[in-house]
Deep mutational scan, measured.
Amino acid sequence: QTVQFNGLEYHFPNPEEAEKFAKKVAKELGGEVRVKDGRWQID
C-alpha cells in the first residue's frame, strides 16, 4: 500500500498502516486524504 504526499511515496505492508499514517499526516498538515488509483494521496 502506498501513501503519496509532497512528491514522496511511503510504502506500507498493509492497508491499515497506510490508512493510519495518511490520516495522521493529513491531520498534521491540515490536508485532505483521498484514494486515487489504489494509493492514498494527501493534498
Rank of each mutant, 00 (worst) to 15 (best):
G31Y: 13
P15T: 09
V33Q: 02
D37K: 05
T2I: 15
K20M: 09
Y10I: 11
V35H: 11
E19Q: 06
F5A: 05
F21K: 03
G7V: 00
K27W: 08
K27G: 09
N6A: 10
A22C: 12
K27Q: 12
G7Y: 03
G38D: 06
N6D: 13
F12I: 01
E19I: 05
V25Y: 05
L8A: 09
Q4H: 13
L29M: 10
V25A: 06
W40K: 04
G7S: 04
Q4I: 15
G31N: 05
V25N: 02
R39L: 10
Q4E: 14
Q1I: 12
P15F: 11
G31T: 10
N14G: 06
P15R: 11
E32M: 12
I42F: 05
A26I: 07
A26E: 02
T2D: 03
W40P: 04
K20A: 13
F5E: 01
V35G: 05
T2L: 09
G31M: 14
E16Q: 11
N14M: 04
V33N: 02
A18L: 03
V35I: 12
P13E: 13
K20C: 15
Q1N: 14
E9S: 08
D43A: 10
A18K: 02
G30V: 04
Q41R: 06
V3N: 00
L29Q: 08
E32R: 13
G38V: 01
L29F: 13
L8G: 07
H11Y: 12
R34N: 09
Y10W: 11
Q4Y: 14
K27P: 01
G7N: 07
I42G: 05
E32I: 15
E16Y: 10
E19V: 03
Q1A: 14
W40C: 07
K36G: 05
G7A: 02
Y10V: 07
W40R: 03
P15D: 07
F12N: 00
W40F: 08
A18W: 01
E28I: 14
Q41A: 06
E17A: 11
K24Y: 08
V3F: 02
F5Q: 01
K23I: 09
Q1P: 09
H11M: 07
W40Q: 04
G30P: 03
I42L: 04
N6Q: 09
V25E: 01
E17R: 02
E19T: 01
Q1D: 10
G30A: 05
G7E: 05
E32V: 14
E28S: 10
F12H: 00
F12P: 02
Q4P: 01
P13W: 08
V35R: 08
P15M: 10
Q41F: 15
D43F: 15
D37Y: 00
E17S: 08
R34T: 13
R39M: 13
G30C: 13
V25W: 09
T2P: 01
V25H: 03
G38C: 14
E28L: 14
V33L: 11
N14K: 03
N14S: 13
E16I: 10
A18N: 01
A26P: 00
A22R: 04
P13I: 09
K36R: 11
Q41T: 14
P13H: 09
T2F: 08
E16D: 10
G38T: 02
A26D: 00
T2S: 08
K23N: 11
A22P: 03
H11D: 06
K23C: 14
D37R: 01
P15E: 11
E9Y: 09
V3M: 02
K23D: 08
R34V: 13
A22Y: 04
P13Y: 07
F12G: 00
L29C: 15
F5H: 07
K36C: 13
R39K: 14
V25F: 05
K20D: 12
